[in-house]
Computed example of a mutant assay.
Amino acid sequence: MDIKDHIRSIPDFPRPGILFYDISTLLAHADAWSVAMGRLAKGISRYQPDVLAGVESRGFLVAAPLALKLGLGFIMVRKRGKLPGPTVPYEYALEYGTDVIEVQADAVQTGQRVVVLDDLLATGGTMGASIDLLNSLGANVVGAGCIIELSFLNGRKRLDVPFTSLVTYDA
């Protein structure tokens, strides 16, 4: 099965000139979604994680069912102010300005093997920041993965861990 057949391209979203790759159509197709999770599970398993971290918000749709499939825990990397209890923030640079992500202070244990997941890797800024944040808390981030990689944006180069994707778009 070609997973790309189940990913819709939407031109000029969220603004003119952007081609948005929408996984909603993949999620809506039970067989394709199952195949995608199976393939991602196989790719992620080789990193032998203890827990999976999903990056807000579509990364939750990838990491949570994958964690369940692999018998692992799931943690959330969220934008500031979205998590209850004590949190640890991490500020990182964007193309124009900065943003902040955070995790709950007790989300990971020292040495815990973590794989960070999102739906799509573009420039790698948020994924890289998530890896840095979790490592700063004592986790051992051993890999990262996504359904879609936009290889022309070179996001993989910003990651200092092995990376897995199911489909790649070159433009």
Rank of each mutant, 00 (worst) to 15 (best):
D31S: 11
A32Y: 04
W33C: 13
S34T: 13
V35E: 15
M37G: 02
R39S: 02
L40A: 06
A41P: 01
G43A: 15
S45L: 10
R46G: 05
Q48I: 05
D50G: 10
V51Y: 03
L52G: 03
L52W: 01
V55P: 03
E56R: 08
E56V: 13
R58T: 07
L61Y: 01
V62Y: 13
V62F: 11
V62H: 12
V62L: 14
P65T: 09
P65D: 10
K69W: 12
G71F: 01
L72R: 02
G73I: 03
F74P: 02
F74R: 08
I75Q: 06
M76S: 09
V77L: 12
V77Q: 13
R78T: 00
G81L: 03
G81Q: 01
G81T: 03
G81W: 01
K82R: 13
L83E: 08
P86D: 15
P86A: 15
T87G: 01
V88M: 10
V88L: 07
P89H: 02
E91H: 05
Y92M: 05
A93R: 15
A93T: 14
L94V: 07
E95F: 12
Y96W: 11
Y96G: 04
D99G: 03
I101K: 01
V103W: 10
Q104H: 15
A105Q: 15
A105P: 06
D106P: 03
A107I: 09
G111F: 10
G111Q: 13
Q112G: 05
V114I: 15
D119V: 06
D119L: 07
L120G: 06
L121P: 08
M127P: 05
